[in-house]
Design a protein around this nucleic acid. Structure first.
Lengths: 344, 344
DNA sequence: AAACCTTCCGAAACCCTTTTCGGGACGCTA
DNA sequence: TAGCGTCCCGAAAAGGGTTTCGGAAGGTTT
């Protein structure tokens, strides 16, 4: 029994640069230079080293590289969005923005729990992430992580309450404007607004934008903004009320796709034709909701991928030393479908 | 102006153990022992060190610890599920299973692209993850990552094609059984099955389970299994066909919640009462779909959190040297709502 | 007072990679 | 043949935390 005998169950350790050097018959220094394309290595030597590295499937240990460089090439994504409706597109946008993938992403779900968030924060800082992206579960401003962190932080979707932090959020006000402009452009004049939970800034902002655009078009809102919850059930109930109180409504602006789905259901039940008699719009352009609707749902797309890319971009800048700050709003866009324009 | 003044632009570097030792007036070795609760440190000395560490918010550098220990305390989650319907619950289950969070998770989305997957795999191995969880976009068996990796791999949701790998998947066959048993228990006898894409093993397995349970109950299937796509539109269209061909149907077993939503819409349009005349069931128990349905949708829950926990558990075992392998199916459960049982 | 033990602290090695610097080998020129 | 320049390669240090081992200081015993 020699000391090189390994128990059968043991997994082969990942090969190190030392192993490559030994196999190629050179020093570790030369092996490093050969693999990294540095000068002063004879072509034959380089070839030997590269072949040795491939043979044993050598992968440089990023940890050791990071400890030298002071940069780990990792980013922490701290989310409170359990469903991933916001954080996943943002994750993808970030993956794209960081480029040919030098950056790996730690995803932590704090589940709207401050304790858990602090806990994950400690873990991420211990792993020496180069930066943090914090994604909220809604667009309401959230407490700052603090300003004495050793790494830059970018807040996405939910801005930080601290103006000196860097936040990137969708432009909910303009979302309301775009929606009303579209409805007006299609000839609607009597537009009711069914919103979600009144305490959400997203509801307030969208309503503000809608009111502004209505005024600009010289129109009066049809009844009050009807706040409720972000559910299909509320969309159904509110639509009944709108039809009862203002039967001459010709458009329903719903503050989420789910509410809009509920509105469509009620309209169908009551024999109201969409979009001929009443147009319906949603917000978020959530494909799951819009694709199955009858007719398919026109919606405002919040551009989450772009939001993620921009957040990642700002983070890279901050890591590079450019201290951006303040709240940056990202443009939204409208996706027109059959619920506002008759299918051709 | 004191020396503690920092230039505004420069970010304070993360403090090291060396900084703590200097502040406490001891060596780095003593500081390490004091913070880690080792013996042979005088209580007064320990207290001084701990206070110094807290004062400068010292966080041990996990990279340095990892390079020593040969374990990084990180796991790679390689997913192809763009929406995160499977991978996010699995992520959460894994977070829970790894316990008080010694483990951090790299999330990479390969977007069903083998090149991108290989690329992320290299990056993860370079970062010396202790293990990998691979999540598929559907339950069809997928190619193995290979058996010569330096870390253990657990396949979740989609099993590996290689039997020697370790896979954890939901029990789709039993899901079909449970669904039919529930419908039979509520007095249904003429049960039609509307499924999704015929090429998906999930569709086949659920249909197999349903057929088995029907036979066990001494019932004949009502017409053929109607394969189509996993969409509401298909659910609507297929329901029309079922009603036209077999008007005496008393239950629609739909292979996804989306299909079931479509079925409910068509039944409502044609004045068929649910659940009195026809019961409707879905699969996946996707809250987004089930909650807004009228009536709320009975569905088979695939227990993704449990799946994730089990996968993480198997991975921990494998990291510890216990070589589990083979395909492990996880139990599913039924969530009964108003679409099969009248609301009380 | 000398020898011994306990208690506590610090120097140094270790992990893996990169980079700098010094030196050996070789060819060319005077 | 001596000297110089060029081309390669290897030794060594750096980076941060943990651990082992040696040793210093102080107290106790004979």
């Amino acid at each position: 029994m020699t000391t090189t005998e390994e128990p059968a169950a043991s997994r082969p350790k990942a090969p190190t640069l030392r192993d490559v050097a030994r196999l190629a018959g050179v020093s570790v220094a030369t092996a490093s230079k050969a693999l990294n394309g540095r000068a002063n290595v004879h072509p034959d030597t380089r070839r030997r080293v590269v072949e040795a590295a491939e043979r044993i499937q050598f992968t440089p240990n990023s940890l050791a590289q990071a400890i030298l460089a002071g940069q780990t090439g990792t980013v922490g994504l701290l989310t409170n969005d359990l469903e991933g409706r916001f954080s996943l597109p943002i994750l993808m946008g970030a993956e794209d923005a960081f480029g040919a993938g030098q950056m790996s992403i730690f995803l932590c779900d704090a589940r709207d729990d401050a304790i858990r968030e602090q806990y994950h924060l400690r873990a991420l800082l211990g792993r020496r992430v180069d930066g943090l992206i914090v994604v909220g579960s809604n667009t309401d401003p959230r407490p700052s992580l603090g300003r004495d962190l050793p790494v830059p932080v970018v807040y996405a979707y939910a801005p930080s309450q601290d103006e000196r932090d860097c936040s990137v959020i969708p432009d909910n006000v303009n979302a309301g404007v775009l929606a009303v402009e579209h409805l007006v452009a299609t000839g609607r004049r009597r537009i009711a607004h069914i919103s979600g939970d009144v305490h959400y800034s997203a509801a307030q902002d969208r309503a503000l934008g809608a009111a502004t655009a209505l005024a600009a078009a010289g129109l009066e809102p049809l009844g009050p903004v009807r706040y409720g919850s972000w559910t299909e059930a509320w969309g159904r109930a509110a639509t009944h009320r709108v039809l009862d109180e203002t039967p001459d409504v010709d458009a329903l602006l719903c503050a989420s796709d789910q509410i809009a789905r509920g509105a469509l259901d009620t309209l169908r039940d009551r024999g109201v034709h969409v979009p001929e008699q009443v147009a319906v719009m949603g917000f978020d352009n959530w494909e799951t909701m819009t694709a199955g609707a009858r007719p398919q749902l026109t919606s405002i797309d919040m551009n989450f991928e772009m939001l993620g890319r921009r957040a990642a971009q700002r983070l890279v800048e901050a890591i590079g030393g450019e201290a951006a700050h303040g709240v940056e709003t990202m443009p939204v866009r409208i996706q027109v479908r059959g619920s506002t324009i008759p299918d051709t």
